[in-house]
Simulated scan of single mutants.
Amino acid sequence: MASRLCLFGLLMFSISMALASDHSPLQDFCVADTKGQVLVNGLACKDPKLAEANDFFFSGLHLPGNTSNAVGSRVTPVTATQLPGLNTLGISLVRIDYAPWGLNPPHTHPRATEILTVIEGSLEVGFVTSNPENRQITKVLQKGDVFVFPVGLIHYQRNVGSGNVVAIAALSSQNPGVITIANAVFGSKPDIASDILVKAFQLDKNVVTDLQSWF
């Protein structure tokens, strides 16, 4: 009986792991047909006989991102949209630039775990576990350090030095998605009713109205 339970548990674990990332491809590759009109869960494939080297190539991650914005950071994505050969392969990449004290605000990736490597500078990183603990796990990273953000959890990064910071992150989806918490809550279109946000965040209605106007 115990062995059957163990086997059942292993089977369920394997199924859950299989469902936790993009589907495995059924061919060598599926170069995205960005002009295709077919709507699928992902991007349609172009004829593999027409695939060429440039379909699997992207240039530009050596270029600094423009961090002259309100949060002082810039994400340069390399997903299947920018690199068609990534389509169906279940992985993508981003470069993140941070100005001094720049912030990549609290956000989630609904479809991907993220593993981040600091290329230059010092970076504070953190994520928050799910309810009911909501425990923050945080660390300051130096050049060459690696940190992982589990799929779906709210996380952030902040430059804690006086110089610029560069990081490269890989994500376990060709289209990980991003939900920036402040933008989603206070910048939704149309607005979430202010009385809902007043009760949820225990804020004065004027504060909520101001926040919605900012976003």
Results as ranks from 00 to 15, higher is better:
8 F>A: 15
8 F>Y: 05
9 G>K: 07
16 S>P: 05
17 M>C: 15
21 S>N: 12
21 S>D: 07
26 L>N: 15
27 Q>Y: 00
27 Q>E: 10
29 F>V: 09
29 F>G: 06
30 C>R: 00
30 C>E: 02
31 V>K: 04
33 D>V: 00
33 D>C: 09
33 D>S: 05
35 K>I: 08
42 G>R: 12
43 L>E: 13
43 L>H: 05
45 C>T: 01
45 C>R: 09
47 D>A: 12
47 D>V: 02
48 P>W: 00
49 K>Q: 12
51 A>M: 08
52 E>V: 15
56 F>A: 05
57 F>T: 09
58 F>N: 13
59 S>Q: 14
60 G>N: 13
65 G>Y: 01
66 N>F: 07
68 S>P: 08
69 N>T: 02
72 G>D: 06
75 V>D: 11
76 T>W: 10
78 V>T: 12
78 V>G: 09
81 T>Y: 11
84 P>F: 01
87 N>K: 02
92 S>Q: 04
93 L>Y: 01
93 L>F: 01
94 V>D: 11
95 R>V: 15
96 I>A: 08
101 W>P: 06
103 L>A: 09
105 P>Q: 03
106 P>Y: 01
106 P>I: 06
109 H>K: 10
110 P>D: 03
114 E>R: 04
115 I>G: 02
116 L>H: 00
117 T>L: 03
120 E>G: 06
123 L>G: 08
124 E>H: 02
129 T>A: 06
130 S>V: 05
130 S>E: 14
131 N>T: 12
132 P>V: 03
132 P>G: 02
133 E>T: 11
134 N>T: 07
135 R>E: 14
136 Q>A: 12
139 K>M: 07
140 V>N: 15
140 V>F: 11
142 Q>L: 09
143 K>S: 04
144 G>C: 07
146 V>I: 13
147 F>A: 00
147 F>R: 00
147 F>Y: 01
148 V>I: 12
150 P>H: 02
150 P>A: 02
151 V>N: 15
152 G>I: 01
152 G>D: 04
161 G>E: 06
162 S>Q: 05
163 G>Y: 03
165 V>Q: 10
165 V>F: 00
165 V>N: 13
166 V>Q: 10
169 A>Y: 02
169 A>C: 03
171 L>E: 08
171 L>Y: 01
177 G>I: 11
177 G>P: 14
178 V>I: 14
178 V>T: 15
178 V>Y: 06
183 N>E: 10
184 A>L: 05
191 D>R: 12
191 D>Q: 13
196 I>N: 10
196 I>F: 02
197 L>V: 08
198 V>T: 14
201 F>D: 10
205 K>W: 04
207 V>S: 15
207 V>I: 14
209 T>K: 14
